[in-house]
Amino acid sequence: MFLKRAWDHELAWHFRRSPVAIAAALLTLACVGAALLAPWIAPQDPFNVAVLDLNEAFLPPAWLPGGKAAFLLGSDNQGRDILSTILYGARISLGVGLASVALALVLGVSAGLAAGYLGGRTDALIMRIADVQLSFPAILIALLVDGVARVALPASSQDRIAIPVLVLSIGFAGWVQYARAVRGSTLVERQKEYVQAARVIGRSPLAIMAEHVLPNVLGPVLVIATIHIATAIITEATLSFLGVGVPATQPSLGTLIRVGNEFLYSGEWWITVFPGAALVVLVLSVNLVGDWLRDALNPRLR
């Protein structure tokens, strides 16, 4: 019943007619599936020091002379299988990306609703903060939050809390675009008579925002969120590449690229190129899905 409705939905109809969207969605599903199933499908557990063998370090990909079949995409300086580190790394990249998007979404939607619905000083305050933050590049904000957290927290716990800090910094860097989109739609919805009808029976501003306005302003937010997942993964990779992201003991794709980068000039290119390619495929597929969703939901492009 539900599946039938979903299949008949306008969006599903658009989806079936767009080969790019289908390909991108399948690719995204494959990436997410591979990342989620990493512990079961990866040939090796790259974080289990017991199975690592330094004699197997710096092996080239299997199809090159000197490569071993067990190490399809070669191995790194510690004898870890590159394919396995990519699968595990994608898990962390995706996890950090999704979590920070969720944080940015909650922050931004709440701020946008409050600004748009309450108006006046609340609106002015929230949107001025947003303007100021928007005048800095997101990566700078993330670096700032990350740096402050590192100084403020004890050094011993830093590896443990590295990922939450990263999520916090990327999430905080991205709330503005949600706030702006939601504020705009809220300003429109607030004028509508169903909101006034709710006010006549004495509903509180909070109840009206949550129950009446929110469901009507979520459409554009979902589009932004999908595209933002790709951006967040890139930001995480950039921060990890700069060395302020996740620690090398729990590498994300960005960390893998940074570590591999050190060996690029000594000829072991596969250590950095394969994680890089994985990042490109992951981000590209998520982005294509987001772009398609944006176009499909835009009535002017139909």
Binding site: K192, E193, Y194, Q196, A197, H212, P215, N216
Partner: peptide
């Protein structure tokens, strides 16, 4: 309200 298209959520 006046506008039956805007007065129902």
């Amino acid at each position: 309200f006046q506008d039956p298209y805007a007065s129902l959520n």
